[in-house]
Amino acid sequence: MQAQSHHRTPAAPHRARTRRGAFLAASATAVLALALAGCGSAASFSGHHHTHTDGAAHGTADPSAAAPSAGGHAGHDMAGHDAAGAGRAAAGNGLAAERGGYRLTATAGTAGTADTLPAGTPAEYRFTITGPDGKPVTAFAVDQTKRMHFYAIRTDLTGFQHLHPEMATDGTWTAPLAALAPGSWRLYASFTPDSGPGAGGGLVLSRTVTVAGEGAAASEVVPAATGTATVDGYTVAVEGALKAGSAGALKVTVSRDGAPVTDLQPYLDTYAHLTAFHAGDQAFAHLHPQGATTGGDGGPTLPFHAELPAAGDWRLFLQFQTGGTLHTAALTLRVA
């Protein structure tokens, strides 16, 4: 799958805290922590952590209801830390439309219906987040400079989009999707309520939509696991081996024409944004940044403290910014 770019006019278990603290102290580079949570950015292509389990996600009658990821982690929650170090709960693998009394409800956009969207043309996807009282939620906490992060991915993990929708006063969000290829898509809303019973707890909810048209049933094979990817003349290399459910280290290095890249610009309060989707079930994982940017340029090496809950292939989308341009590289990571 060919990476694309967009132009801007952008916690490990208790036993790992000591190790992570030492790692941070030893590194001059910002450390990123992997989590099952969400945050976002606008890109047409393009995943903190103490763990606890609260059981399966709340069921729904729609086809976007909870489904366990490979390895049976449907109800696996993670809690994380923002750049200031404050605790933030993260919930689930993103495969449910409802969780903890909060529900993602879609409405018809400028084209299509709540469950369908047109192919080959930009479309607006409108939705609300309703709370346990059944009313639309309008108070959301800011996470990495945004109150809502929205993702779209086709079933075969192609066509990734990462957006920041706008909310109307009645609680209706509008996500301006770029043209979608025919097929089945899953749309994810990542947010943190700022009031009510769920205040302060991060949630990732999703629904599926159908994009009709020729080739809707066609599916690309997820590219084989590899340690490198190229985009816009940049090469991204990922080093490290992960085992499902265990904390591990990943090191991302960005280069160009064989030379290290040291002019990574701050993007969403970090030097890189990383999102992951599990092949087969589209389980969502967000690799959340640990620590704010210094205000200057970053790179070329970005260390990650990582934990993915399920074995198999994960498609990673790494976003970074140079010269005011947002780049997104995609590669497949095999988790044992």
Rank of each mutant, 00 (worst) to 15 (best):
A11M: 15
H14G: 08
T18H: 15
A26P: 00
A28N: 15
A33K: 10
S41A: 10
H48C: 04
H49G: 06
H52P: 01
A56R: 14
H58I: 11
D62T: 15
G71N: 05
G75R: 07
H81A: 12
A84F: 06
G85V: 12
A86G: 06
N93G: 02
E98I: 14
L104Y: 10
T110S: 07
D115Y: 02
T116L: 01
T121H: 07
R126D: 00
R126S: 08
F127E: 00
T128I: 10
K135A: 09
F140E: 00
A141L: 12
A152E: 01
L157H: 00
H162M: 05
L163M: 07
M167S: 09
T169Y: 04
D170Y: 11
G171C: 10
A175H: 06
A181C: 06
W185E: 01
S190D: 15
S190C: 15
S195M: 09
G196H: 10
V204M: 11
V204A: 10
L205F: 15
G213F: 07
E214H: 09
G215Y: 05
A216I: 13
A216Q: 08
S219R: 15
E220G: 14
V221M: 05
T228Y: 01
Y234M: 07
A237V: 06
L242R: 03
A247P: 09
A249L: 05
A259H: 10
P260I: 09
T262N: 04
Y271R: 10
L274A: 02
A276Q: 04
A283Q: 03
A285C: 03
H288K: 13
P289C: 14
T294C: 07
L302Y: 01
A306F: 14
G312V: 08
F317C: 14
Q321I: 13
L333C: 05
A336R: 03
